[in-house]
């Protein structure tokens, strides 16, 4: 009997931790439908008013477009340089391998504020203005370690023998890569791109250093709106962001399962 009561306490505790984690997020979603001027409890009805306002807000739409373009380009660039690096670490042995791996993962442990200052200082020394390019290269540095981790974990499962078998059956190295390795790599590529897109899309701290008024991203825009207290419009924008950033990985998970069934 004692075992059961101990276990139910553990279960209750876990439920409470979940409530703690999710109550604020749920509150954002609920309050985004509040028609009142101030986004607070109690709810005085249910309306899509703030979403309509949002869809008509020029600057927010521009920030959205910026975030999407930046996130997509970051995803492509980071994955393009990250996958070869991950292959080098998984497939080859070479001197200094461990230290280089640690170096490439280091940006995870360096505070974003410091990354922000460092790159900005460098750009200033080069006498270049803040630009979209600065945001892009900055986001590549921030997302690269995560892509490396995710892709390396998937690559371990792809055996070198498959390629060698193809080549011993007469395929050229390029053919072997195109026909064998690349399709097997596809889930890793997708995961890497997805991860870097989301991290880029969500990033605030370093982006605050690098963004200018004309290339603000959505989180930077939200940060600016927050100066004059939290409005239902922010809750509505938050809800859109939550739905977007959650549905993308779910969709990708579904796609990659479908993909792996076919191959």
């Amino acid at each position: 009997m004692k075992r059961i009561s101990g276990w139910s306490l553990i279960r209750l505790y876990t439920i409470l931790v979940y409530v703690f984690m999710f109550a604020p997020i749920v509150a954002v979603i609920i309050l985004s439908f509040n028609p009142q001027q101030f986004g607070s409890f109690p709810m005085k009805g249910f309306s899509f008013e703030w979403y309509v306002k949002l869809a008509g807000n020029e600057t927010i739409l521009r920030a959205f477009k910026n975030s999407m373009v930046l996130g997509s380009l970051t995803a492509i660039l980071t994955t393009a340089i990250g996958i070869p690096a991950a292959m080098a670490f998984v497939r080859y042995d070479f001197p200094g391998k461990n230290s280089l791996n640690t170096l490439l993962l280091a940006p995870i442990m360096i505070p974003e504020v410091v990354l922000g200052v460092a790159l900005l200082l460098f750009i200033r020394w080069l006498q270049q203005p803040k630009s979209f390019l600065l945001l892009l290269i900055g986001h590549v540095v921030i997302t690269l370690p995560y892509v490396l981790l995710v892709v390396q974990a998937r690559l371990v499962g792809i055996k070198r023998e498959y390629e060698e078998a193809a080549m011993s059956l007469g395929a050229s190295p390029f053919q072997a890569f195109r026909e064998i390795t690349f399709p097997l790599l596809m889930p890793a590529i997708l995961a890497g791109m997805l991860f870097s897109f989301t991290i880029s899309f969500d990033d605030v701290t370093a982006t605050l250093f690098w963004a200018t008024a004309s290339n603000q991203t959505v989180p930077v825009k939200i940060f600016g709106m927050l100066r004059n207290s939290i409005s239902p419009e922010i809750n509505a924008l938050g809800t859109v962001m939550i739905i977007l950033t959650i549905s993308i990985p779910l969709l990708a998970g579904y796609l990659s399962r479908k993909f792996s069934k076919e191959t």
Partner: peptide, 20 residues
């Protein structure tokens, strides 16, 4: 996967003067 800034400011809805 949820935006860091949204998660942070969501506490205003809970702890604010007119929060939950």
């Amino acid at each position: 996967w949820i935006s860091f800034i949204i998660r942070t400011l969501s506490w205003i809805n809970i702890l604010g003067d007119s929060g939950l």
